[in-house]
Design a protein around this nucleic acid. Structure first.
Lengths: 183, 183
DNA sequence: AAGTTTGTTAAAAATTTATTTAACGTTACG
DNA sequence: CGTAACGTTAAATAAATTTTTAACAAACTT
């Protein structure tokens, strides 16, 4: 292999590394470990990878790759593929960022809505009991009512988030914000 | 104060605590510390608070409250207010979740777009150099081109995120997904 | 069926992050 | 002015998370 071919190859790798670094850095915000972030960013430029290739490429332990790959599978950023002949499992990265966006945020937002709505429903029941309680002073009733109303008001937001999730999942959002807006 | 009044007061606090717990738990996903998450959730039910009140209410140190409040101010979930007479600073929680959503995600997404787009531009320049290099083998050129195209394709996504941010910031998104959808 | 290869689980070590204690600067008030 | 109140910064401690080493289980090969 010639000198300049080797130099070009290195140039390409450097170019990839710049993007790998950026993806990896922003993925921290998505609640994955540095290992998982690095792994996904690396896989983004590969056709497919086995656990051993990951370990070699990132210079990390196999269990670390195993848990990272599982985490990435949970948020559907990596999928397992069947490879005839080899006993090793092979994995491919989801390269469509729109899909990753959808899966990650919808999962996250639904969890948020569910948890908070459940708490709000329970709290509102308690507050109604206080309001209905004949032995409550007007002051107490007023406070309970105010709290109840604040919670009721906040439901508007959670319903909206739910609608947003529906719109993203169904793809309807792209009717409003098209994929080729300013291109 | 009568027995039952006291019991009612406790009931109200319990109701609030349920919601505080839920908000606090989901806020972890927003990249804030447990202290900051707890603080915001607590402030959500208060008119205003001073640092000392926060410390007392959460049973934590003053510097912890100080840094938490600053972090919350960064994502505009808490604002400082002027209180005549008192030397103590007073803070109020942003109670409009729509605003918090907007500020937090738009900030986050813009950072992601900026970082990744910068890396992509740099990488694409490098790749063009390799492609234009007359000493590159066809194989190398093909690899560089494929990588270039993959990056070019991904820009569609970042442009879309940018448009989404614009739509949320301007409030146009509410024309498509109204605030009172299923109410 | 014994021995490898592959992947996962469990416990330990290392790193990072969050929180506190202590010291410092600043500003208001006597 | 000096003293006290308030908030922040810096260093140290504590806690949580991430990663690794080591042991284990499953499945293929011979």
């Amino acid at each position: 292999m010639s000198e300049s071919t080797e130099r070009s190859r290195i140039k390409i790798e450097e170019a990839k590394d710049k993007v790998i670094g950026a993806i990896s850095e922003t993925m921290d915000l998505y609640g994955v470990t540095p290992a998982a972030a690095n792994l996904y960013a690396t896989m983004y430029f590969k056709e497919q990878m086995t656990l051993d290739e990951m370990r070699t490429e990132l210079g990390m332990s196999k269990p670390s790759m195993s848990t990272s790959v599982r985490k990435l599978q949970e948020i559907e950023m990596v999928k397992k593929t069947f490879t005839r002949g080899s006993r090793k499992h092979t994995y491919i990265a989801e390269k469509n960022f729109f899909r990753s966006f959808m899966v990650f945020y919808c999962q996250m937002w639904e969890r948020e809505v569910k948890l908070n709505m459940e708490a709000i429903e329970e709290a509102q029941e308690d507050l109604i009991n206080v309001i209905k309680d004949s032995s409550s002073t007007p002051e107490i009733v007023a406070e309970a009512k105010q709290c109840y109303d604040q919670l009721e008001e906040s439901k508007t937001y959670y319903h909206w988030v739910e609608d947003l999730v529906l719109s993203i999942r169904s793809g309807k959002i792209f009717e409003f914000i098209p994929k080729n807006g300013q291109k």
